[in-house]
């Protein structure tokens, strides 16, 4: 069981690290939202589920309740982070911010819808 917890935490750590590096290194607004939205969600899922399993070490009703609460946090974050990312991208498109492509700026007319 400890092995499972350690693996979960390591996976979560990797994803969160990748998300952080991605936010800093990605070239434009939309690509930055990609690691911010996806990797943080999965990293949080892996980390909190690892912690929830670790919490069940000394099994009791209280510990089980705490683990269920932790998984509830994951459940809500799983819904709210992608929705928030979706809303931000939507707002960016509506405001006319065109995504980064290899085309020249003159060819990008009309991609940012009004």
């Amino acid at each position: 069981m400890n092995l499972f917890v350690v693996i979960c935490l390591c996976i979560g750590f990797l994803f969160l690290l990748g998300g952080t590096v991605g936010i800093i290194r990605m070239p434009d607004f939309y690509t930055r939202l990609h690691p911010a939205g996806k990797l943080d969600t999965l990293g949080l899922f892996a980390m909190v589920s690892g912690l929830a399993v670790y919490n069940l070490h000394h099994f009791s009703f209280g510990a089980l309740l705490l683990s269920v609460k932790m998984m509830l946090i994951v459940f809500f974050v799983f819904h709210s982070i992608p929705t928030a990312t979706h809303a931000i991208v939507d707002a960016g498109m509506r405001a006319g911010l065109s995504p980064l492509t290899r085309k020249k700026p003159s060819q990008l007319q009309g991609t940012g819808e009004k």
Binding site: S80, T83, H86, A87, D90, R94
Partner: peptide
């Protein structure tokens, strides 16, 4: 006028 965004509305209604 903004078109209604089903994703945001549904998730907010759930949350």
């Amino acid at each position: 006028w903004l078109p209604p965004d089903t994703i945001i509305k549904t998730v907010c209604r759930m949350l």
